[in-house]
Every structure is written in structure tokens, then in C-alpha cells.
């Protein structure tokens, strides 16, 4: 087992490595690489899990599971398909949503809360504050028609299925489906034009 100082030295060597290189190092069982991936991305992963699950203990369990999964099966991450951050967040989102949907009573309660939120015009702008990209993301969000914005917010940050979103927004299911896809594409165009990392 590596000593603490050796692990710290390993970690410091990895701070300049790309995310893809980190995953290769993880495949070589280098814990320092996992520590560096955690340092870079765990905050966002935890925030998403906490947002979806509310309960901090459950959120921490999901974060733990996400990082253990990349440790156990690094080959499932393909750097050509997307960034490590989006991969980890997708894993986190999928797992959190599974947990939400396995608790029907909790879900019903949150549906009510989100219905109130949807009615009061809750805005995903408040979820974004990273200084480096926040302006561009706000701009991309501002470009969205309000219906697309709310549909994406309820589906992604609320963890609802599109049928639930349709119910919450009192819109046809097909319309919600189309609006989510159109909204994501619209945001991507704006972000790509702004040169925001990870979207090209």
C-alpha cells in the first residue's frame, strides 16, 4: 500500500493531466488519479445528487457509487464520446433518478412540491454559478423559450419523467418531448458559438 506522502506526490503529478489521461491512470489502479478526478468533479456530482435526492446521506452514497464505478470499470468511459464530467454526471443522474423512482411516496410528495415550483415560475438560472462559464450558460438559458426551459428543468433537475413533466406543465406529452430536445439543441448551439468547453 502506498504511503500517504507517496499518494500525495502521485496526486500532485496528476493535477496537470487531462481527464482522459486520468482515466487511463485509473485503469492502472492509480488511486491518485481517482483522487484527482474526484477533486475536479465530485462537487458537481454531489450537487446534482443532492439537488435530485434532497437527502445528503443518499446523495453522498450516490457520489461514492459513481466514483467506485469508474474505479471498477474505467473502460466504460470513452473520451471520444464526451467529457469525464458529463459521464460522471450522467451516471449520477441515472442512479439518483432510479432511487427517486423506487420511492413512490416520496416521489408523489416531490411531484406536489415541483408542481408548486413550476407554477411559481422556478428558474434554472439560479442553479448555475460557475464564474468561468456562468455568463454563457445564462445567455444560453435566456435564449430558451420559457416552456422549453421549464420542461428541461423539471426533467433534469427535478428527476421527473417527461409524462410527469407534461402533467406538471399541463401540456401534451409529445410537446414536452419535442421541447426538451429542441431546448437542449438550442442551448448547445449558443454554447458552442460561445466556445464553452465540452460543447462543440
Amino acid at each position: 500500500m502506498a504511503s500517504k506522502s507517496a499518494r500525495m506526490a502521485q496526486t500532485s503529478d496528476l493535477t496537470l493531466a487531462s481527464d482522459a489521461s486520468l482515466v487511463v491512470a485509473i485503469a492502472r489502479w492509480r488511486q491518485g488519479a481517482l483522487a484527482e478526478a474526484y477533486r475536479r468533479h465530485a462537487g458537481a456530482v454531489y450537487a446534482l445528487a443532492r439537488r435530485l435526492l434532497v437527502d445528503h446521506t443518499l446523495a453522498e452514497e450516490v457520489v461514492q457509487e459513481v466514483f467506485l464505478r469508474i474505479w471498477d470499470a474505467p473502460e466504460k468511459f470513452d473520451p471520444e464520446r464526451g467529457s469525464l464530467r458529463s459521464y460522471l454526471l450522467a451516471q449520477c443522474h441515472g442512479r439518483s433518478v432510479d432511487l427517486i423512482r423506487s420511492e413512490q411516496s416520496r416521489r408523489d410528495r416531490e411531484l406536489k412540491e415541483h408542481r408548486q415550483q413550476a407554477e411559481s415560475g422556478y428558474d434554472i438560472e439560479h442553479e448555475v454559478w460557475d464564474l468561468a462559464v456562468a455568463d454563457h450558460i445564462r445567455e444560453a438559458i435566456a435564449d430558451l423559450p420559457v416552456e422549453e426551459r421549464r420542461a428541461i428543468e423539471l426533467a433534469y433537475l427535478g428527476g421527473h419523467t417527461y409524462r410527469e413533466v407534461a402533467l406538471l406543465l399541463d401540456q401534451p406529452e409529445g410537446t414536452v418531448k419535442s421541447r426538451i430536445r429542441a431546448g437542449l439543441r438550442r442551448m448547445r448551439r449558443v454554447l458552442a458559438d460561445a466556445g464553452v468547453g465540452g460543447v462543440s
Binding site: 450537487a47 454526471l89 454559478w129 450558460i137 433534469y156 442551448m187 454554447l191
Partner: peptide, 15 residues
């Protein structure tokens, strides 16, 4: 789509 969603989730807070 996931890259865009990842940006929405980005809060910059610590775990």
C-alpha cells in the same frame, strides 16, 4: 445533450 445537461448541473461547490 448530456454535455449540455452537465453544464446545467455545474455548481462549482465542493463535495
Amino acid at each position: 445533450h448530456r454535455e449540455v445537461a452537465a453544464l446545467l448541473a455545474h455548481t462549482g461547490a465542493d463535495a
